[in-house]
Design a protein around this nucleic acid. Structure first.
Lengths: 111, 111
DNA sequence: TTGCTATATCGTAAAAGTACGATGAAGCCG
DNA sequence: CGGCTTCATCGTACTTTTACGATATAGCAA
Protein backbone atom coordinates (compact mmCIF):
# COMPACT_ATOMS: atom_id res chain seq x y z
CA UNK A 1 0.00 0.00 0.00
CA UNK A 2 1.03 3.53 -0.60
CA UNK A 3 -0.27 5.50 2.35
CA UNK A 4 1.67 8.70 2.79
CA UNK A 5 3.42 9.72 -0.35
CA UNK A 6 0.21 10.44 -2.23
CA UNK A 7 0.97 14.05 -1.45
CA UNK A 8 3.54 16.00 0.50
CA UNK A 9 6.94 14.92 -0.68
CA UNK A 10 9.60 14.19 1.88
CA UNK A 11 10.52 17.16 4.00
CA UNK A 12 14.03 18.51 3.82
CA UNK A 13 16.36 16.49 5.96
CA UNK A 14 19.74 17.00 7.52
CA UNK A 15 20.75 18.72 10.74
CA UNK A 16 19.63 22.18 11.75
CA UNK A 17 22.49 24.60 11.64
CA UNK A 18 21.14 27.71 13.29
CA UNK A 19 22.12 28.59 16.86
CA UNK A 20 19.93 27.58 19.75
CA UNK A 21 20.49 30.73 21.77
CA UNK A 22 20.69 34.44 21.23
CA UNK A 23 18.24 37.11 20.18
CA UNK A 24 17.47 35.47 16.84
CA UNK A 25 16.79 32.14 18.53
CA UNK A 26 14.56 33.93 21.02
CA UNK A 27 12.51 35.38 18.21
CA UNK A 28 12.38 32.06 16.42
CA UNK A 29 11.27 30.16 19.50
CA UNK A 30 8.72 32.81 20.34
CA UNK A 31 7.26 32.65 16.84
CA UNK A 32 7.01 28.87 16.89
CA UNK A 33 5.55 28.87 20.39
CA UNK A 34 3.05 31.53 19.43
CA UNK A 35 1.85 29.34 16.59
CA UNK A 36 1.44 26.50 19.07
CA UNK A 37 -0.36 28.76 21.50
CA UNK A 38 -3.91 27.78 20.69
CA UNK A 39 -5.59 24.46 21.51
CA UNK A 40 -7.07 24.14 18.04
CA UNK A 41 -3.65 24.40 16.47
CA UNK A 42 -2.19 21.85 18.82
CA UNK A 43 -5.08 19.58 17.93
CA UNK A 44 -4.37 20.08 14.23
CA UNK A 45 -0.72 19.16 14.68
CA UNK A 46 -1.70 16.06 16.63
CA UNK A 47 -4.19 15.14 13.94
CA UNK A 48 -1.56 15.45 11.24
CA UNK A 49 0.81 13.42 13.33
CA UNK A 50 -1.60 10.56 13.91
CA UNK A 51 -2.21 9.98 10.25
CA UNK A 52 1.33 9.66 9.08
CA UNK A 53 -0.22 10.36 5.75
CA UNK A 54 -1.32 13.91 5.32
CA UNK A 55 -4.99 14.71 5.41
CA UNK A 56 -6.90 17.57 3.91
CA UNK A 57 -9.93 19.47 5.04
CA UNK A 58 -11.07 16.51 7.06
CA UNK A 59 -9.52 18.60 9.75
CA UNK A 60 -12.59 20.79 9.57
CA UNK A 61 -14.77 17.79 10.29
CA UNK A 62 -12.74 16.91 13.35
CA UNK A 63 -12.84 20.31 14.97
CA UNK A 64 -15.79 22.24 16.40
CA UNK A 65 -14.94 25.28 14.33
CA UNK A 66 -16.14 26.86 11.13
CA UNK A 67 -14.26 26.09 7.95
CA UNK A 68 -12.95 29.62 7.63
CA UNK A 69 -11.63 29.54 11.17
CA UNK A 70 -9.81 26.27 10.59
CA UNK A 71 -8.36 27.72 7.42
CA UNK A 72 -7.04 30.64 9.44
CA UNK A 73 -5.42 28.32 11.97
CA UNK A 74 -3.86 26.32 9.15
CA UNK A 75 -2.45 29.52 7.75
CA UNK A 76 -0.88 30.41 11.09
CA UNK A 77 0.76 26.99 11.27
CA UNK A 78 1.92 27.23 7.69
CA UNK A 79 3.32 30.73 8.11
CA UNK A 80 5.24 29.47 11.13
CA UNK A 81 6.63 26.70 8.96
CA UNK A 82 5.22 23.92 11.09
CA UNK A 83 3.07 22.40 8.36
CA UNK A 84 3.00 22.28 4.61
CA UNK A 85 0.04 22.35 2.26
CA UNK A 86 0.28 20.72 -1.14
CA UNK A 87 -2.45 21.20 -3.69
CA UNK A 88 -4.03 17.92 -4.72
CA UNK A 89 -6.61 18.62 -7.36
CA UNK A 90 -9.46 20.53 -5.79
CA UNK A 91 -8.22 19.82 -2.27
CA UNK A 92 -5.22 20.80 -0.25
CA UNK A 93 -3.26 18.20 1.59
CA UNK A 94 -1.57 19.30 4.79
CA UNK A 95 1.19 17.50 6.55
CA UNK A 96 3.74 18.15 9.24
CA UNK A 97 7.05 19.73 8.44
CA UNK A 98 9.35 17.46 10.44
CA UNK A 99 12.28 19.80 10.14
CA UNK A 100 10.42 22.64 11.85
CA UNK A 101 9.20 20.27 14.51
CA UNK A 102 12.74 19.14 15.20
CA UNK A 103 13.83 22.73 15.36
CA UNK A 104 11.09 23.52 17.86
CA UNK A 105 12.10 20.61 20.04
CA UNK A 106 15.73 21.68 19.92
CA UNK A 107 14.87 25.23 20.91
CA UNK A 108 12.61 24.15 23.74
CA UNK A 109 15.20 21.64 24.83
CA UNK A 110 17.71 24.46 25.07
CA UNK A 111 15.72 26.05 27.85
CA UNK B 1 29.84 30.15 48.24
CA UNK B 2 26.11 30.05 48.42
CA UNK B 3 24.88 31.15 45.02
CA UNK B 4 21.41 29.95 44.35
CA UNK B 5 19.58 29.05 47.52
CA UNK B 6 19.45 32.60 48.81
CA UNK B 7 15.87 32.55 47.66
CA UNK B 8 13.60 30.20 45.77
CA UNK B 9 13.64 26.91 47.53
CA UNK B 10 13.98 23.73 45.49
CA UNK B 11 11.15 23.16 43.08
CA UNK B 12 8.98 20.13 43.52
CA UNK B 13 10.59 17.06 42.07
CA UNK B 14 9.48 13.68 40.92
CA UNK B 15 7.99 12.54 37.63
CA UNK B 16 5.08 14.21 35.90
CA UNK B 17 2.04 12.04 35.98
CA UNK B 18 -0.40 13.73 33.65
CA UNK B 19 -1.00 12.37 30.15
CA UNK B 20 0.93 13.74 27.22
CA UNK B 21 -1.98 13.55 24.77
CA UNK B 22 -5.67 14.29 24.66
CA UNK B 23 -7.74 17.42 24.90
CA UNK B 24 -6.44 18.36 28.34
CA UNK B 25 -2.86 17.98 27.18
CA UNK B 26 -3.66 20.10 24.13
CA UNK B 27 -4.93 22.88 26.35
CA UNK B 28 -1.97 22.58 28.66
CA UNK B 29 0.55 22.67 25.84
CA UNK B 30 -1.25 25.58 24.20
CA UNK B 31 -1.21 27.54 27.45
CA UNK B 32 2.49 26.92 28.02
CA UNK B 33 3.33 27.72 24.41
CA UNK B 34 1.29 30.88 24.55
CA UNK B 35 3.30 32.03 27.54
CA UNK B 36 6.46 31.33 25.55
CA UNK B 37 5.08 33.13 22.55
CA UNK B 38 6.79 36.46 23.02
CA UNK B 39 10.48 37.21 22.55
CA UNK B 40 10.69 39.17 25.78
CA UNK B 41 9.38 36.22 27.75
CA UNK B 42 11.78 33.84 26.08
CA UNK B 43 14.55 36.28 26.96
CA UNK B 44 13.40 36.34 30.57
CA UNK B 45 13.45 32.57 30.80
CA UNK B 46 16.93 32.47 29.29
CA UNK B 47 18.07 35.13 31.73
CA UNK B 48 16.75 33.15 34.66
CA UNK B 49 18.40 30.05 33.30
CA UNK B 50 21.82 31.62 32.87
CA UNK B 51 22.06 32.70 36.45
CA UNK B 52 21.34 29.43 38.11
CA UNK B 53 20.66 31.70 41.00
CA UNK B 54 17.44 33.64 40.72
CA UNK B 55 17.60 37.31 39.98
CA UNK B 56 15.13 40.03 40.71
CA UNK B 57 14.15 43.12 38.83
CA UNK B 58 17.55 43.24 37.22
CA UNK B 59 15.49 41.76 34.46
CA UNK B 60 14.11 45.20 33.85
CA UNK B 61 17.63 46.53 33.34
CA UNK B 62 18.36 43.83 30.78
CA UNK B 63 15.32 44.40 28.61
CA UNK B 64 14.40 47.41 26.50
CA UNK B 65 10.99 47.63 28.10
CA UNK B 66 9.33 49.68 30.79
CA UNK B 67 9.22 48.26 34.31
CA UNK B 68 5.47 47.86 34.21
CA UNK B 69 5.68 45.94 30.95
CA UNK B 70 8.31 43.58 32.32
CA UNK B 71 6.15 43.05 35.37
CA UNK B 72 3.28 42.10 33.09
CA UNK B 73 5.44 39.59 31.24
CA UNK B 74 6.62 38.13 34.55
CA UNK B 75 3.00 37.74 35.57
CA UNK B 76 2.21 35.86 32.36
CA UNK B 77 5.09 33.49 32.99
CA UNK B 78 4.11 33.05 36.61
CA UNK B 79 0.45 32.42 35.77
CA UNK B 80 1.60 29.78 33.31
CA UNK B 81 3.61 28.19 36.09
CA UNK B 82 6.93 28.56 34.30
CA UNK B 83 8.54 30.75 36.92
CA UNK B 84 8.20 31.45 40.60
CA UNK B 85 8.56 34.70 42.46
CA UNK B 86 9.60 34.71 46.10
CA UNK B 87 9.49 37.87 48.12
CA UNK B 88 12.90 38.81 49.44
CA UNK B 89 12.59 41.87 51.57
CA UNK B 90 11.67 44.79 49.38
CA UNK B 91 12.41 42.85 46.19
CA UNK B 92 11.02 39.84 44.47
CA UNK B 93 13.28 37.06 43.37
CA UNK B 94 12.21 35.13 40.31
CA UNK B 95 13.48 31.77 39.27
CA UNK B 96 12.59 29.02 36.88
CA UNK B 97 10.13 26.32 37.83
CA UNK B 98 12.00 23.26 36.60
CA UNK B 99 8.98 21.04 36.88
CA UNK B 100 6.95 23.15 34.46
CA UNK B 101 9.89 23.34 32.11
CA UNK B 102 10.18 19.57 32.11
CA UNK B 103 6.48 19.28 31.50
CA UNK B 104 6.74 21.64 28.54
CA UNK B 105 9.58 19.64 27.07
CA UNK B 106 7.64 16.44 27.51
CA UNK B 107 4.57 17.86 25.80
CA UNK B 108 6.56 19.31 22.91
CA UNK B 109 8.48 16.07 22.65
CA UNK B 110 5.17 14.27 22.28
CA UNK B 111 4.51 16.02 19.00
C1' DT C 1 7.28 59.12 61.47
C1' DT C 2 9.12 60.46 56.68
C1' DG C 3 11.32 59.17 52.78
C1' DC C 4 13.36 55.83 49.49
C1' DT C 5 13.49 51.68 46.75
C1' DA C 6 11.36 47.87 44.46
C1' DT C 7 7.43 45.90 42.56
C1' DA C 8 2.64 45.39 41.32
C1' DT C 9 -1.50 47.21 39.58
C1' DC C 10 -4.48 50.58 37.23
C1' DG C 11 -6.01 53.08 33.21
C1' DT C 12 -5.56 53.69 28.59
C1' DA C 13 -4.58 53.21 23.68
C1' DA C 14 -3.12 50.69 19.83
C1' DA C 15 -2.38 46.37 17.81
C1' DA C 16 -3.17 41.53 17.20
C1' DG C 17 -5.91 37.32 17.73
C1' DT C 18 -10.29 34.67 17.28
C1' DA C 19 -14.41 33.45 15.17
C1' DC C 20 -18.12 33.65 11.99
C1' DG C 21 -20.77 34.10 7.57
C1' DA C 22 -20.30 35.58 2.91
C1' DT C 23 -17.77 35.72 -1.08
C1' DG C 24 -14.14 34.44 -4.38
C1' DA C 25 -10.96 31.30 -6.89
C1' DA C 26 -9.63 26.90 -8.70
C1' DG C 27 -10.35 22.41 -10.10
C1' DC C 28 -13.33 18.36 -11.19
C1' DC C 29 -17.62 16.10 -13.24
C1' DG C 30 -21.49 15.64 -16.09
C1' DC D 1 -20.50 24.95 -21.04
C1' DG D 2 -22.83 24.87 -16.14
C1' DG D 3 -22.78 23.23 -11.62
C1' DC D 4 -20.44 21.28 -7.71
C1' DT D 5 -16.87 20.70 -4.34
C1' DT D 6 -12.89 22.41 -1.78
C1' DC D 7 -10.49 25.77 0.15
C1' DA D 8 -8.84 30.67 0.85
C1' DT D 9 -9.87 35.28 1.60
C1' DC D 10 -12.76 39.24 2.86
C1' DG D 11 -15.40 41.94 6.02
C1' DT D 12 -16.85 42.29 10.54
C1' DA D 13 -17.35 42.05 15.60
C1' DC D 14 -15.42 40.94 19.80
C1' DT D 15 -11.76 39.74 22.85
C1' DT D 16 -7.04 39.61 24.13
C1' DT D 17 -2.36 41.20 24.09
C1' DT D 18 1.14 44.62 24.38
C1' DA D 19 3.02 48.73 25.96
C1' DC D 20 3.30 52.89 28.44
C1' DG D 21 2.92 56.32 32.30
C1' DA D 22 0.82 57.03 36.61
C1' DT D 23 -0.37 55.35 40.89
C1' DA D 24 -0.61 52.12 44.78
C1' DT D 25 1.66 48.84 47.99
C1' DA D 26 5.22 46.95 50.81
C1' DG D 27 9.49 46.87 53.10
C1' DC D 28 13.75 49.11 54.67
C1' DA D 29 16.39 53.10 56.52
C1' DA D 30 17.17 57.25 58.78
Amino acid sequence: MKPAESCCGPGSDGPDERPIEGAAADDELAALAKALGHPARVAILRLLGRKNACICGDIVAELPLAQSTVSQHLKVLKDAGLIRGDIDGPRVCYCLEPRALRRLKALVGGL
